[in-house]
């Protein structure tokens, strides 16, 4: 009753459509450049790990991954820590300007990164954070904190108020209630919010590239190096691309049971 005819075919076709371009990238990453350019092969006929070996042995390549992970993790931790109390406040209390504040936060999630690229460059150069993971982490807060507040507010609202009241009657102080009772109750929500912060920080390129030059260069910026005088190094580019997919795929696997609810921002 709650499904539609031909659903197996529809979902299978869609999944194939999603996987085909990714397969093509993986396929290319195991080929030599000679094979890529000279023939059209559906799978690597002379499989090689040379492309991956180059990335793992060249510091300028693998440091790109480490830099990216650094700012993504810093950003996720900051976003969740500051968003938790705010989400509680928005969920439980009315206060002066609460609706306007919530809308203002939301509007920052929607602000185009292109608008902020240049001012951020000036700002972070002025305070000496340019080309550090902190600059990118703080810059990504502009869209991740509002998102984290939005998601967590939905999850906090699903916890009945009676639990707060009982805890306070039992003599819990506010910080103790927060850490001992509320946080465990919305643990899955925190996981989902962290997942989203990770995701949006990981996939963003424009700000990350603008705010770094040498020391903190993210992998997405390093990838542009594959264009050289000798032409494109397609195999290397593909291998680098495949490696950027893996962290995301790992994270999805851990949150797969909460993912649908998370995408609805805890609001279903």
């Amino acid at each position: 009753m709650n499904t539609i005819p031909g659903r197996r075919i529809i979902i299978s076709l869609f999944l194939v459509f999603l996987l085909l371009p990714i397969y093509w990238l993986v396929n290319m990453s195991f080929k030599t450049n000679n094979e890529i350019v000279s023939t059209m092969t559906l799978w690597p006929h002379q499989p090689t790990l040379a492309n991956y070996m180059r990335i793992f042995t060249d510091e300028s390549w693998y440091s790109g991954y480490i830099n990216s992970l650094k700012y993504v993790i810093i950003n996720t931790v900051i976003s969740i820590l500051v968003a938790l109390p705010a989400a509680y406040a928005f969920s439980r209390y009315r206060f002066l300007g609460d609706k306007h504040l919530f809308f203002w936060l939301l509007s920052n999630r929607m602000a185009p990164a292109a608008v902020y690229a240049l001012p951020f460059f000036n700002l972070y150069s002025a305070i000496g954070l340019f080309d550090t993971p902190w600059a990118v982490a703080l810059a990504h807060c502009i869209f991740n904190i509002p998102l984290a507040v939005w998601i967590l507010e939905g999850f906090v609202s699903s916890v009945p108020r009676e639990i707060d009241e009982t805890a306070f009657l039992d003599g819990y102080s506010f910080p103790r209630f927060f850490v001992k009772i509320l946080v465990p109750l919305i643990a899955s929500g925190i996981g989902v919010a962290a997942f989203f912060c990770f995701m949006f920080s990981w996939v963003e390129l424009l700000l990350a590239r603008t705010l770094t030059s040498v020391d903190a260069k993210p992998i997405s910026a390093v990838m542009t190096r594959t264009v050289s005088a000798a032409g494109m190094d397609w195999g290397l580019l593909a291998a680098a691309g495949v490696l950027t997919i893996i962290p995301g795929a790992l994270v999805i696997w851990f949150v797969r049971n909460y993912i649908a609810r998370g995408f609805a921002l805890g609001r279903v």
Binding site: L18, V203, S220, A249, I252
Partner: peptide
């Protein structure tokens, strides 16, 4: 997992 996969790929990739 497959559905979520494209969402986790960096935009330039």
């Amino acid at each position: 997992v497959v559905l979520a996969l494209p969402l986790l790929i960096p935009w330039n990739v």
